[in-house]
Design a protein around this nucleic acid. Structure first.
Length: 443
RNA sequence: GUGGCUAUGGUGUAACGGUUAACACUGGAGCUUGUGGAGCUCUCGAUCAGGGUUCGAUUCCCUGUAGCCACCCCA
């Protein structure tokens, strides 16, 4: 309490309470776009057998520090971390998979019929500089299939994510696909890759000279022209796959082909997180390539993570595959077709009230309409008839109900067909039936 | 973390280094309007923050902050 006085004395300016960098308020139309997307995505996920899970936004630091891999930016530079009063080290989740695996282990889900299929969505946090398609508070919708190494699981995750994006309006999707091997073959490949690059080290860009030591796989997605040239003859991960991995990869491709999912093998695709094994993928909107000239951003990405569980303290390996959609990128994209959330009903009737008498009774009439399940629009503060009709016109509703002084006294309303401009007077007591009739006509 | 560009009411814009910081929309108050995007009157509201240069800064310079974009990295 000793600080109370001095805090009071300090004047608060608007900029002192502005929303934090890279984090924003969602409201109105935009809010509904997120809501609509999450609903549709959940619906599809549930249909394919995924079940919901919501993990805490805060996790113990170790959930992510031990899983994401030393040297990855997300782990080393981008986590919001805090120390609680009990001196626990907690972090705001930067991604979903590690927490899902933590929950799987914690709740003994290996006792459930395998695989366990889960979907989740919500905010994630990364402390990086905002730019196109990148926020500090971001929203993801993710799918995970835990407890099976089978290739069909990979295909199902990829297919479900693609379907969700298609439902959200994306017509030109491409699944960029690669396999980065497992512990049998990845080590050998990395050796081969680094020795290839070391031979040409003097021709590489500055970053890549570093990368050879720190993160050799990243050599493959350097954008520098000099390194692009080098890439052409570089050994690809797929060439070095062991038999099991090769077989797995081939099956995934066969499934995708059988499902008619457009894919492209991208030898240079690598992912940022260490826990990935075998399958890695990104889903991009190819129509963006033509339009902008800008690099297309990945709308979704993911991969297999067969060794993640041991990093989280499990005694045995738990195979898993998952992926997540960057919902902010979806909503921002010009290809996105907004989906209405269920709670939003397109109004069928615009309710117009005139005069005090009518206003007094209007809420009762509106309640009758709500019980009859007729979505309406209205404006409680506008008074003019012409004005309200004009708004109704603009809203594009097929009918208006006009409720004025005279009608209020007679317990009637005027129902006006906006298209034909014909109208008829209806007793309020008969309104539910009348309106039901209209509804049938409308559909 | 690094770099480029930007910053004026709620929104969109205007102002040669000198004005009472202008205009439109929006918001609010009021009047008028019983049948298709109305009209009239009044009104609230801004130079991102802090420093400098100058007689004088919205305007020029520096720092900070935020936004957009790019790098890094990533959804």
């Amino acid at each position: 309490m000793p600080n109370e006085k001095s805090e009071k004395a300090k004047k608060v300016h608007a900029e002192d309470i502005a929303s934090p960098k890279g984090m924003r308020d969602l409201m109105d139309k935009e809010y509904h776009e997120y809501q609509g997307f999450f609903e549709k995505a959940s619906e599809i996920a549930i249909y394919y057998g995924f079940r919901p899970i919501e993990t805490p936004i805060l996790e113990r630091e170790a959930v992510f520090t031990s899983s994401l891999g030393i040297g990855t930016d997300i782990r080393d530079k981008e986590m919001y971390s805090l120390k609680t009063k009990g001196s626990d080290h907690l972090v705001m989740r930067p991604e979903g998979t590690a927490a899902i695996m933590r929950a799987y282990i914690e709740h003994g889900m290996q006792a459930l019929p395998q695989p366990v299929m889960l979907y989740y969505y919500g905010p994630f946090f990364r402390h990086e500089n905002p730019q196109r398609g990148r926020l500090r508070e971001l929203h993801q919708f993710g799918l995970e299939i835990l407890g099976t190494p089978k290739s069909i699981a990979d295909a199902l995750v990829i297919r479900s994510l693609t379907l969700i994006l298609e439902e959200a309006g994306f017509k030109n999707l491409s699944v960029e696909l690669n396999s980065i091997g497992d512990k049998e073959c990845r080590g050998g490949y990395i050796k081969e890759l680094t020795s290839y690059y070391k031979k040409h080290i003097e021709k590489l860009c500055l970053h890549c000279k570093e990368r050879i030591k720190t993160n050799p796989l990243r050599l493959l997605d350097c954008k520098d022209i000099r390194c692009q040239e080098m890439k052409k003859n570089a050994p690809t991960p797929i060439e070095s796959l062991c038999n099991d991995c090769r077989h797995h990869f081939k099956e995934v491709i066969e499934y995708l082909e059988a499902m008619g999912t457009p894919y492209r093998i991208n030898n240079y695709l690598v992912r940022g997180l260490d826990y990935y094994t075998r399958t890695v993928f990104e889903i991009i909107d190819t129509s963006e390539i033509v339009e902008g000239g800008l690099e297309p951003l990945a709308l979704a990405s993911g991969g297999r993570f067969d060794y993640l569980s041991k990093a989280l303290g499990s005694k045995k390996d738990i195979a898993g595959i998952g992926g997540a959609i960057g919902v902010d990128r979806v909503i921002m994209s010009p290809s996105h077709k907004p989906l209405d959330p269920r709670i939003i009903k397109k109004p069928k009737i615009y309710f117009i009230q005139l005069g005090f008498e009518a206003k007094l009774k209007s809420l009762t009439v509106i309640e009758i309409l709500r019980k009859a399940r007729v979505p309406i629009a209205q404006s409680i503060s506008k008074d003019g008839l012409g004005q309200q009709l004009a708004i109704a016109e603009r809203t594009g509703v097929p009918f208006t109900i006009i409720f004025g002084q005279k009608e209020a006294l007679e317990n009637t309303v005027i129902v006006r067909n906006m298209e034909t401009r014909s109208q008829e007077t209806v007793k309020i007591s008969a309104l539910p039936d009348f309106v039901k009739h209209l509804k049938d006509e409308l559909r």
